[in-house]
Nucleic acid binder design. Sequence first.
RNA 1: GGGCUUGUAGCUCAGGUGGUUAGAGCGCUACACUGAUAAUGUAGAGGUCCGUGGUUCGAGUCCACGCAGGCCCA
Length: 1099
Amino acid sequence: MKYKEYKGLNYAEVADRMLEYWKENKIFEKSVDSREGQETFTFYEGPPSANGTPGIHHVMARAVKDIFCRYKTLKGFQVKRKGGWDTHGLPVELQVEKELGITKEDIGKKISVEEYNQKCRETVMKYKDEWDDLTQKMGYWVDLDDPYVTFDRDYMETLWYLLKKLYDKGMLYKGYTIQPYSPAAGTGLSSHELNQPGTYRDVKDTTVTAQFKVKGEESTFLLAWTTTPWTLAGNSALAVGEKIDYVKVKTYNPYTFKQIEVILAKDRVGEYFNAKAKDIAFEDYSEGDKLIPYEIVEEYKGADLVGLEYEQLLPYVAPDGPAFRVIPGDYVSTEDGTGIVHISPTFGADDQRVAKQAGIGAILVKDEEGNSMPIVDKQGRYVKEIADFAGMYVKNEYYKDGEAPEKSLDVQIAIKLKEENRAFKVEKYEHSYPHCWRTDKPVLYYPLDSWFIKTTAMKDKLVELNKTINWKPESTGTGRFGNWLENLVDWNLSRSRFWGTPLPIWVSEDRTEEKCIGSMEELKAEVEKSIEAGFMSESIDADFDLHRPYVDNVILVSESGQKMFREPDLIDVWFDSGAMPYAQWHYPFENKDIFDANFPADFIAEGVDQTRGWFFTLHAIAVMLYDNVAFKNVIANGLVLDKNGNKMSKRLGNAIDPFKTLAEHGPDATRWYMISNANPWDNLKFNIDGVVEVQRRFFGTLQNTYSFFALYANLDGFDYKSGDIAASERTESDRWILSKLNSLIAKVGAAYEDYEPTKAARLIQDFTIDDLSNWYVRLNRKRFWRGEYNNDKKAAYQTLYTCLLTIAKLGSPIAPFYMDQLFQDLNAVTGLDKSESVHLADFPKTDHAIVDVDLEQRMSLAQNVSSLVHSLRKKHKIKVRQPLSKILLPVINGQFKRQVCAVEDLILSEVNIKEIEFVDDESGVLVKNIKPNFRKLGQEYGPKMKEIAAKINQLPAEDIAVLENENLLKLELTDGVVELTLEDVEINYQDIPGWSVASEGRLTVALDITISDDLRKEGIARDLVNRVQNLRKDMGLEVQDKIKINIEKNTDLVNSALEANREYICNETQALSLDILDNLSDGNDLEMDEHKLRVKIEA
RNA sequence: GGGCUUGUAGCUCAGGUGGUUAGAGCGCUACACUGAUAAUGUAGAGGUCCGUGGUUCGAGUCCACGCAGGCCCA
């Protein structure tokens, strides 16, 4: 059996081949089944929506998920991964509407709800095949055969069960919230709808800076600015920033010319008053003057103003609680307006929030049924209580064509305020304002009734349990998510839509009785009761569809015998996905045992944009209903941007096609690039060049190393079947790379455990490229191809084999296809591992006995010394092929000489030097260099440091000697004496007079650059060997072919060089003879520096 | 407007608890190697560490205020 050898590996084909192998041999299934009975590691799949095509960012997100599931499998855990599909919600509805060319208004008219929902059901899995294809091609292991689907009845039944549990706990209630509302369409708008392109438009509105009269003052007013003057009639408070500075300014009203004092933010004075008027005397002002004098008469902090009461500006309707006070507002700024914000709790979400916090009521009226409502009706008109403007639309856009009044309501209110000495400034202002994407008319922020989950009641628990979750990165957990929990509002569950999970709440006609249904069985039973009461005619079947319109037709009977109708709302789709831990198993109706073993999740991962989405809903439901977290570890990954850092979008054409990328570069390089390039939680600037680089640099190097191994191992028939060569019989470099390898296992394991895939990838990559390929293999090449198949050679094979096999295992979670091939190619010959795939193997264990820190240190010394010698050779333009006699190394500490001696041979051959000579103090040739130890001195002397450092830098040699001998030196400063010890300084040898020297840190190397005749001759011989080898290759000779070399007589130097090194040359070039002839007519002319040789080679 | 986050070489990224000469890879330039060769090695050039203040003997690192990009939310 041979190690497989490849010519020009195609990484995409590797993946195709492995994918086939996995399928045929059911490797994924085995990776789960073979761990039966082991500890479980639970992963939850956040369901994607299959009504859109997958993008490259899905490859990223799923690679992250896959890595840890595969890693934990290697560690012996059983990792079940159930796939899932998110199927409800607005995007599906929009897509259907687009396809059918209809709008929401057409539903129930042009198309029945039944047909519409049927269409949604068909559309939602439109791209499922494409998703499944990507899943497989990228190597994401997840169970696609039995996924959970959120529109399944079983799934929805669990949702109802959970909702009922919430209901029974008193955590579901109906209430008001301020939502974007389109009066023209008569419907609330979701944030998603508001984010449609083109909804935000620049509009010019009449704005008013109104004067709110401070209670008990003659002529003092608080100034507040609004772009929606119609909301002023709903004003019930004013908000200030507690830290903002405010001033009271004496001036005149520009419309009534009355003298007044106004309060506004200090920073805004320049905006409202013309600095040119500052020095005008108040007596000199006459009515109508353009320049109005002003004077700051008092200053306050915002906090001082809190509690100040004022008179109602437009007293049409009395408030329903305490009102007309200054309250703190955390969002108040001095960017625009006056720094005092007009609060109308019925027309602004922030307004409602801060008002509620401050215990301020709203301005409400009663409708015909006696229910409270705001001063604007659902059509967008003022109610009759606003006597002067009753029935007027608050925006001119809401009137039918041609019916709008010349002066809009905003303008009329501005005029009224001007006349009443209540307007300080009225002007047109252009700003961006959202419009309804269907009617094109401006939206109102308006209170709508909705069903809520009382998440705020559980806030402390949510916060507390969040602290037990391991967030990657931590800041998302403490910051974005933590702050969100701190400022939690109740979860608005209601959606007025068609395709989703219906709210299972039935309410009696007089709204006094409610029923929440928690299962199919319960629904059936209630229907039976309803049939008895005569409200329903038929029972419902087991296959009853819980969607609209069917549930809407279910009329139940209340305890008192009233008809009950379902609340028409659907629930937020985020509840669907947040409930997946339970609903995916149809818990508690089925699979109780599976659920118990798989809750909570050990690990989940999704985009950071899910923080307030899926991460929150998972957490909220688990905490509220099960008093537990839903997940213990979470990676919130960042976005995948294009290479310039712009968001990818199909519209801009900068989106990367994942299928194309995978087909061209293979999934392994794509995954490795994504993971190694940046931490998953940082945004990734996806550049295809980076994938190519990873492929070339990492996979190329690894594959080269494998090929090198395979080539010679096949020649020698190495099968690793004769037992391990003892460590003592292996070379220094063998033991070194194995030490490094075992350190690597520990570090990579720790990185995976810590959910740091990027660290793991970089560690593996650096080891493979720097340690294994560029140092171990390069230095040991000859051991593989030269000489007989002895123990030394075996040791080399074993060492390299172990490294490669271990890399395959360590890297397999990230590059599952390639690493499996590598594993199998190696293992096929040796059969050392019984696993038929790397993914069924065990994660390597660190053998601490093999880790040798001292050995790693001395190899590092060898590398540094070599690097310094190369640098010196370079400086003097002496190539490595020219041997040199020796280098000098100053001994820097007790370990040094021993350590260097151990790696002496490596250094000598690497840099082509004959010997290493150590020099120490006694030699007397070293020049000492003293440097202050800043850290130590700084801690000890602080401010005196500068002076001490300067003194140390110019310390004469004799003082250094004193310090070294006595470990004490007195230093005279301008203000006293300090005593230095050796710890306060660092002494190095950084120069050796008469030598060429290079140093790095404390390490110094001196190179003898004199080239003796012998050395020169040897150099010439080496050059010749090199040229002859090239000729051999050009002639197509095999390694073992013998040759004859004839050379035309040359200069004396060259001739003697050849004579002196005849044996060496013949040995290296497999030459049987080397003859110097007087005349050679048909040879090759070779140039070697200044020498020209005519050489002829015969096989 | 708020919260979070990023800003270090042309590009992609490292830089515990502050320590004086800021690193790596790619790219570029030069040289070397040539039985791993559609490889490989070494060296060099390349930086106002986003800006401005502050703390400190000393700031890429800590603090404040800005600027620019990103995400989420108003």
